[in-house]
Computed example of a mutant assay.
Amino acid sequence: MDFKDYYSILGVSKDADDTSIKKVYQKLAKKYHPDVNPGNKEAEEKFKEVTEAYQAISDPEKRRKYEEVRQNYEAWQKHGGQGDYDWSRWQAQPGEGSHTRTMTPEEFAAMFGDSGWEGSFSGSGGGFSDFFSTLFGMGDIEQGPHHRGHQAARTQTRQDRELKVNISLEEAYHGTTRVIDTGEKRLQAKIPKGVRSGSKVRLAGQGIFLLITLEPHAVYTREGDDLTTDISVNFYKAVLGGEIKVSTLGGEITFKIPPHTQGNTKFRLKGKGMPHLESPNQFGDLYVHIQLTLPSNLGGEERSALQDLATKYQHL
């Protein structure tokens, strides 16, 4: 999904006031309206684009949210913009934002004058873009009242559905996809890196939210974006120190423990945990919990050596 610069689409500055935005939109809407350009698909798409932009930045609440997204997105680009930008944090929640937005007769008269248009209005508007739908909810852009009588346009509503989806910790780490069967069609849903149990992933334009549940993992426990794993270390390596192999979700690494490592010691491996949902190029930490493994089936010489050590240090 691409970011939309609504200010550029309308040709206004980022600090333009409501009056300036309205005047510019009025001019563009008259120029590109489908009834003024019958059969011109390019003009129709341009009309939809400027109408969407106007809906986004003429409403104070939408404009505030859009400004947050714009500034965050531009900061992400300045820092390299690696990978895919994570839009999930900005998704409209069920019931949030507008669904279908149609210009009322009063708005239309105020915008274009009481005389209206000479032609009739087709009302054949298309849907909002994925970008708009993700931020503000789903909807269709309709063209306005029919003919000069200003017949009120029809308002549509849709009920958002919530589907439960179980994923593994590995899928949450790498990101994954799921094929969703709505009964009418099959959709491929992208689940971003770093999701947690309780995260909601919105399928833009579909009225569907995926409620994510992470399945328990045999090796790792998760707390926020940090992971903890137990590693067995034998008695000799704990006493003398040495290298151990640690499996992470990003691959196996070698880690050196110091001499005299005690049981239940935790070591922090920075950046080896889960990716942050909002910034997938940043990671939490992995905590390695040391579990001592005592030697078994000791030979006579080994037992004698340990006995000597025990006698030497029994008063410490």
Results as ranks from 00 to 15, higher is better:
5 D>F: 03
6 Y>P: 11
11 G>S: 07
12 V>C: 12
15 D>P: 03
16 A>Q: 06
16 A>M: 14
21 I>M: 06
21 I>R: 04
22 K>G: 04
23 K>G: 06
26 Q>C: 06
26 Q>A: 08
27 K>G: 10
36 V>F: 09
36 V>I: 13
39 G>S: 03
41 K>D: 15
45 E>Y: 07
47 F>R: 05
52 E>D: 05
58 S>K: 03
61 E>F: 05
67 E>T: 14
68 E>Q: 15
74 E>A: 04
76 W>T: 02
78 K>S: 08
82 Q>C: 02
84 D>A: 02
85 Y>K: 06
85 Y>C: 11
85 Y>M: 09
91 Q>K: 04
91 Q>D: 10
93 Q>E: 15
95 G>P: 10
96 E>W: 05
99 H>V: 11
100 T>A: 10
101 R>V: 13
102 T>I: 12
105 P>I: 15
110 A>V: 01
110 A>L: 14
111 M>C: 05
112 F>N: 10
113 G>Q: 14
113 G>N: 13
117 W>S: 08
126 G>T: 13
127 G>F: 12
130 D>K: 06
130 D>L: 07
130 D>F: 03
131 F>V: 10
132 F>Q: 07
133 S>V: 01
139 G>I: 06
142 E>F: 10
143 Q>C: 01
146 H>Q: 05
148 R>D: 09
153 A>N: 12
153 A>Y: 09
154 R>W: 12
157 T>H: 09
158 R>H: 11
160 D>G: 14
166 N>G: 01
167 I>E: 00
168 S>K: 12
168 S>M: 10
171 E>D: 14
173 Y>W: 02
173 Y>Q: 01
183 G>R: 09
183 G>M: 06
185 K>M: 10
185 K>P: 07
192 P>T: 06
193 K>N: 00
197 S>Q: 03
206 Q>E: 14
211 L>H: 12
219 V>C: 03
220 Y>P: 08
221 T>S: 13
226 D>R: 05
226 D>K: 03
237 K>E: 13
244 I>N: 08
248 T>F: 02
248 T>E: 12
251 G>Y: 01
253 I>W: 02
253 I>C: 04
253 I>M: 07
254 T>S: 13
255 F>T: 02
255 F>L: 04
262 Q>W: 10
263 G>R: 08
263 G>W: 09
264 N>T: 15
266 K>N: 06
266 K>V: 07
266 K>A: 08
267 F>V: 08
268 R>T: 15
268 R>C: 15
271 G>M: 05
278 E>A: 05
278 E>I: 03
282 Q>P: 01
283 F>A: 00
283 F>M: 02
286 L>W: 04
287 Y>S: 10
288 V>H: 03
291 Q>E: 15
292 L>K: 10
293 T>Y: 07
294 L>R: 10
299 G>F: 08
304 S>L: 11
306 L>Q: 14
309 L>F: 03
309 L>A: 15
310 A>Y: 08
314 Q>I: 14
315 H>T: 14
